[in-house]
Design a protein around this nucleic acid. Structure first.
Lengths: 198, 198
DNA sequence: AAAAAATACGACCGGTCGTTCTATTATCTA
DNA sequence: TAGATAATAGAACGACCGGTCGTATTTTTT
């Protein structure tokens, strides 16, 4: 009862880390068990199936994203400042959450976009949530009169996601050391354009 | 000699298509052989290793991208018009090239960013090429006086890649029917901002 | 038409995959 | 502390993995 919860947590953390490197599908139970000094069957007993493990990994990562990125940003007062904080933290989140293989949601998106199933469904739901959060923060800045009223918040969220994605690819695949800088420049430009002329 | 080349081409086409759905790693020789009505060993004989097959798939896809996206755009006169054509074609390229699982370069980027090897190296080279092409077309529009001189072409290329990526994710994962529209809006805004004030 | 070369096949290798079952050990509760 | 329960290990499963090899068949060249 108690011990089980603890090891289950450790398994999820290890699985999450490994899944950022190998993907949700590339992650294998044997390898994970080795890495955690557990038997494959002992590990497996905590999850009904590998598919279920994948879903739980996504949930665990989403919880951490909320802790590290979303909630701290939502504490910031001010419309544009809150948005900036949100995006900044989101840009840094692969590092802050110590995901050695980069953001798991990026990896999972490419992996699952053609594989129907519970894992894909959960990922889609989480991604939608993320975009809605972004859009809501944009809308709030609008309502506070800091951003132009004629903007479509969802369009802005769409474009911000683009910056996050290209930054991730530049960092992880191209190993571009200036990716974060470029991303911030892009955000600057986007916000400058979105700012209400006073 | 002659026949070998033909079947090798058919294998690559099938492998490319399948790899867009399953990933370069998820693609298996057995499944591919079944799909092509070939024996696994007969298929394998055309490639020294699976790794080599992956590299050749990437090359084949890059050739098609050049055919379908790059070269037609480079025929267009005018600075901004050429850039627009390039981006428009790039946005549509997963469909035009009949990649049932979406752009293979997007899938491969997430899959290979943590797997050193020849496939990763080739992918990085091709991605760099793509960005350079984008940047070059931007620079040309600058030199023609159509876009602002103080723009960094590589920064613009970085941001355009972001639009391509978020569009891809919106289409393939979120099944958003308005993704292409949103992407075009984003490009509009980016170009409006980049245009030289006359 | 015969010889040479290229191509494809089928059987098989050692390994690993996710999963199941049973047995044993550790933990928690009364 | 005894008994119930939860947690883990170990062995085994059928399926499939990438890859090898010898052989049969087809294609090309002579």
């Amino acid at each position: 009862m108690r011990k089980g919860e603890r090891t289950r947590g450790k398994i999820l953390d290890g699985a999450w880390r490994l899944a950022t490197e190998l993907g949700l599908e590339g992650l294998t139970l044997g390898r994970l068990a080795d890495e955690l000094d557990l038997s494959k069957s002992g590990l497996f007993a905590h999850f009904a199936s590998k598919e279920n493990l994948q879903v739980q990994i996504l949930d665990r990562a989403a919880e951490r994203l909320a802790e590290i990125v979303i909630r701290p940003a939502l504490k910031v007062q001010g419309g544009e400042r809150r948005l900036r904080t949100l995006v900044d933290r989101w840009l840094e989140w692969p590092k802050r959450a110590r995901q050695p293989g980069g953001c798991i949601f990026v990896a999972a998106a490419a992996e699952l976009d053609d594989r129907p199933g519970p894992a894909r469904d959960r990922l889609v739901a989480l991604k939608r949530e993320g975009r809605e959060t972004l859009a809501r923060v944009v809308k709030r800045a609008q309502d506070m009169g800091e951003l132009r009223r004629d903007l479509d918040p969802e369009q802005v969220a769409f474009e911000i996601m683009g910056i996050l994605l290209t930054c991730h690819e530049s960092t992880r695949l191209l190993r571009d050391p200036h990716a974060l800088e470029r991303a911030r420049t892009a955000v600057d430009r986007l916000l400058a354009d979105a700012r209400a002329r006073s």
